[in-house]
Simulated assay, not measured.
Amino acid sequence: MGWVSTGDGYEVALVEGRVAARATTGRSAGRQLKSLPRALKGHPEVDRLRRFAEWLERHDAACVAQVDAWMVSSLPVPTGLLARVWPDTAWQSALRDLVVVGDDPDDVGFLRGATDAGELQLVNLDGETVRIAPRTVTLPHPVLLPDLDDLRDFAAELGMVQRVEQIHRGTWRKPEDLRARSTEVRDFAGGSFRSRFALAARASSLGYRVSGGYATTRVRDGVRTVEAAVWIGEPYWDGGVETGALNWQDQDGRALPLVEVGPVAWSEGMRMAAALYAGRVIEEGKNA
């Protein structure tokens, strides 16, 4: 964005998300000032740029949230849509370097660009740049990526950084020796918190929904939506609490046997339970 004249010896512009000013006259003409002059604090152009900066920030966050939702659900995304939004720097920042899979399972690579013709440019594990143009692609949840370790190593070699946590997202694989009738996991139960409010606040800060006595997250796992839930204590209880068991429910509210929980729902539920448990009070001293 270029500099806009305020008509009183100054120009203003957005620089790295903040309103900046520079003088148009005198010895400092053309030089960016360290702070906004007092005369510009209430100027309409400054106010307009601030509102625009706030919109850009909300737009950026919305792009990241949408791409994260595509990745967690592993839903097919139209290739043409990705190519259309790529010129937008906010979308591009959220999408760049995510692992993309085309129609052929071997069409796997890190997304590095998109063309006007609707092609996606990927860097594969051989270090080659390839172009694919299937009708849809997926941005798979990492638990579904068979070459996850290789992808992590390759990304580290190239210094890739993903804004949407994908290949470095914490994953949990479902054990194969689960009991047929078991409906809960207690690996992260028993984490002590000084108050139910503190535990609920931690859940909310991590992006999880607090409903009744539970912290929950909804995950599309294959063809159905599953809700993972961790008990965090009765609402309005003002004493200490402990994290409870983790369980999963289908859309009808039926508790799912663990053997019926899909790989993505299992991983995301365990990720939530582990993140809540990590904030527990840890006793120090001889009796810890």
Rank of each mutant, 00 (worst) to 15 (best):
G233E: 04
Q166G: 09
N247E: 03
R96H: 07
L158Q: 09
T89P: 03
H141K: 05
T129C: 03
D252N: 14
V12P: 01
G30D: 05
A245D: 10
A23D: 05
L56M: 09
G233W: 02
F154S: 06
S192E: 05
T225C: 06
G240V: 09
L178N: 05
D107Y: 02
Q162F: 04
R194W: 00
D68N: 14
I232D: 03
Y214G: 04
L246T: 15
E54H: 03
G159A: 13
S192Y: 09
R152D: 06
F197E: 09
L81T: 15
A203T: 14
P146G: 07
P235N: 11
L33S: 07
E184P: 00
F188D: 06
G233A: 11
S5E: 10
D187R: 14
V261S: 09
D187N: 12
R280E: 08
L56I: 07
E57H: 06
A13C: 12
V67P: 00
G213V: 12
D8H: 09
T243L: 00
V164H: 01
W266Y: 09
D238E: 11
I167M: 04
V19P: 01
S73C: 12
R179T: 14
H168C: 05
T6D: 02
G113D: 08
V100M: 07
L120G: 02
D149C: 03
R131N: 04
G191A: 15
A156W: 00
D187Q: 13
G102F: 04
W231F: 09
V15R: 10
W55I: 09
V85D: 06
H59V: 06
R163C: 04
F110W: 04
N287V: 14
V46Q: 02
S195V: 13
T89V: 13
E268G: 08
C63Q: 11
W70H: 07
A273F: 07
T217C: 08
T89Q: 07
R131I: 01
